[in-house]
Simulated assay, not measured.
Amino acid sequence: MSQLGAEVAPGFHVVSLLAHGSRVDTYDVVDLARDCRAVLKVVRPDRAHEERVVDALRVEGTLLTTLSHPHLVRGYDLLEEPRPAVVLETVPGSTLAALVDDGAMSSRDTALVGRQLASVLGYLHRHGWLHLDVKPENVVVQEGRVVLIDLGVASRPGRLERAVGTEGYAAPEQAAGGTVGPAADVRGLGATLWECLTREAPGDAPDLDVLRGRGPLGDLVADCLRPDPSLRPSVREVAGRLDAVLAAPDRLRGWWSSRRRWRR
């Protein structure tokens, strides 16, 4: 790990270490060329010889510097020296995990989060990619705008070489290293919304009756968490049902409608 003020890559000076991961270190840096703060994800020195780790970061960097969506973190550059790294925009705000830790969210705010995530997931899917790690820690909320981050395990649809994602959020077919499609991200989206409403991670086999029958939003979240991917709604259907939730009076959204709203 690089120390405060050190040059972690040419032209990038460390402000702080944001995360020390199993494959990459993530830094808050000063980008001298752009004269601004940025985020730098760099392969750890002890993993730099592993082709799979390096390739995953290159895929993430290529996606984020090529694709552009209002709810997707923006990539600036993909570096190769001295170690592979991705330069990302700094997204001020709080992670959704931090907001949920502060209290369960109202149905309207939960639906707003879900609608924006459905938008960016649909965009990724139309470009032939799956995120495969949708969870509150990978969502940043900035004045009501939701930004999806961390495409570190993004993959094309099809059979996985190994299990990827985060336990409790990953779809069963994903956790088993099986064949995955857009339905895997729908499961991650449902797990994220479950946590917004209940303040608890759903786990691998949640009791769907906790939310089912408690309003259109609860029914939707339960449907997204179905074990069988063929029974989960499509991202397009999720978006449509969330639009209906947002258009409905509070009393029709669910029993949690009056819970805490986002702090602005």
Rank of each mutant, 00 (worst) to 15 (best):
T66G: 10
S94G: 06
H20F: 10
L252N: 15
V147E: 01
E200T: 13
T62M: 07
R214A: 12
L96A: 05
C196F: 00
V153R: 03
G254R: 04
R74D: 01
R126D: 13
G190F: 05
R260V: 13
V53R: 00
V24M: 15
S68P: 02
A244P: 08
G215D: 03
L88G: 02
S16W: 07
R58G: 02
A175D: 08
R212P: 09
L88W: 01
A56V: 04
V86H: 05
I149F: 00
A33N: 05
V140T: 04
D243R: 11
G103S: 05
E237I: 10
D243T: 14
R260C: 08
M1D: 14
Q3L: 11
L246H: 09
G61N: 01
D204H: 02
S22H: 15
L231Y: 12
L130M: 04
R236Y: 12
R156L: 15
L121Q: 10
E7N: 12
L121A: 07
W255M: 14
R126Y: 11
A38T: 01
S155W: 11
L32Y: 07
D101N: 09
Y169I: 09
L211W: 05
W255G: 15
E60N: 08
G181C: 14
A97W: 13
D250I: 15
Y76H: 08
T110C: 03
L189R: 10
R47W: 07
P202M: 02
D209I: 14
